[in-house]
């Protein structure tokens, strides 16, 4: 059997893998957005800029310092996380008492400023970033060729999502996080340093975005503009999954990646809009999102 509903099986599987790769990026980014929203109640419009920074820093590390993919994978997420911590300390902290709209405006402004700064310095053109030699090539699975790098991206993001879920749901730190998300003032009155946790949560969410950026660098053109398409889809993912739901963010990210991949095979013209069609349907049926709690 090498056809399914008249579609060559190899093409179908290839698109599904590509869909999972995109879904992996959606999952990593929406996971960060979800934990930031849960803890800071800020819709982080700068998330795409942090993703772009991850990829740009990986490219800069190679171009200026000769640091390769593996070094970038380890160094860039903490670096972007530290940048986010500085932003939290100096800017976000001032607006927690205000209407959430201010958080949206501030992070949107930050996204414009960082995007603009990188465009000013490096131009809008894309830079190539090579797949590391260890992950070049493909594995012959018998029924299809699986490019190693795609398998790697899926594996890493699944592992990171699983680890995040474990930390949040099964550890003491996670219990502090859940408690602080639910009732920050009371949690602080029990002796837990909530302001530090808020700061670190923003840093970790940003580091996840940067990790996605480094992972994405070899799969796309690295450019200051690379965040714009991604971030719109990711916000749709978060809306579909339900604001603030961690499991929802991850499952919806992967699921929508797959749906996009399938649509490319069945009706390619709709592949860039299918996510928004799903969003409209979900919002009509379940306004709080698939995994969100009705208020």
């Amino acid at each position: 059997m090498n056809e399914l509903f008249g579609i060559p099986l190899a093409a179908l599987l290839g698109q599904l893998v590509l869909g999972l790769v995109n879904g992996s990026f959606y999952a990593l980014l929406s996971l960060g957005l979800a934990i930031i929203f849960g803890m800071l109640h800020i819709i982080n419009f700068a998330h795409g800029a942090l993703y772009m920074m991850g990829a740009m820093l990986a490219w800069m590390a190679l171009h200026y310092f000769g640091l390769g993919y593996w070094q970038a994978l380890v160094l860039v997420p903490p670096l972007v996380g530290a940048f986010a911590v500085a932003v939290e300390r100096t800017l976000l902290r001032r607006i927690y008492r205000l209407d959430p709209l201010y958080g949206l405006l501030l992070t949107f402004g930050l996204a414009l400023v960082t995007g603009g700064a990188f465009r000013h310095a490096f131009g809008a053109g894309g830079q190539p970033y090579a797949i590391p030699p260890q992950l070049a090539g493909a594995i012959d699975l018998g029924f299809m060729f699986l490019p190693k790098y795609r398998a790697w991206v899926i594996a890493v993001s699944l592992a990171v999502c699983l680890a995040s879920w474990y930390v949040i749901e099964k550890t003491r730190l996670g219990a502090y996080l859940r408690a602080a998300t639910e009732n920050p003032k009371l949690t602080q009155a029990f002796g837990i340093n909530v302001p530090i946790m808020v700061m670190l949560t923003f840093g970790c969410g940003a580091a996840l975005a940067a990790l996605a950026g480094v992972l994405a660098a070899p799969t796309t053109q690295v450019s200051p503009l690379m965040s714009s398409n991604m971030i719109i889809t990711v916000f749709a993912v978060v809306v579909i999954g339900g604001m603030g739901s961690i499991l929802g963010a991850v499952l919806t990210g992967l699921g929508l990646g797959l749906i996009e991949g399938l649509t490319k095979v069945v009706y390619a013209e709709a592949s860039s809009t299918v996510v928004f069609v799903v969003m409209a349907i979900v919002l009509a049926l379940r306004p709080a999102g698939l995994f969100g709690k009705e208020k």
Binding site: A179, L186, A189, F190
Partner: peptide
């Protein structure tokens, strides 16, 4: 002092609304 520093002086606070967390089990 910030609230967490006050608690660390050895103060236990039981709020009027009890403040049981819905996202945690009784033992958690």
């Amino acid at each position: 002092m910030a609230p967490h520093r006050i608690a660390q002086l050895g103060v236990g606070y039981c709020p009027e609304e009890r403040g049981i967390y819905a996202s945690l089990s009784a033992e958690e």
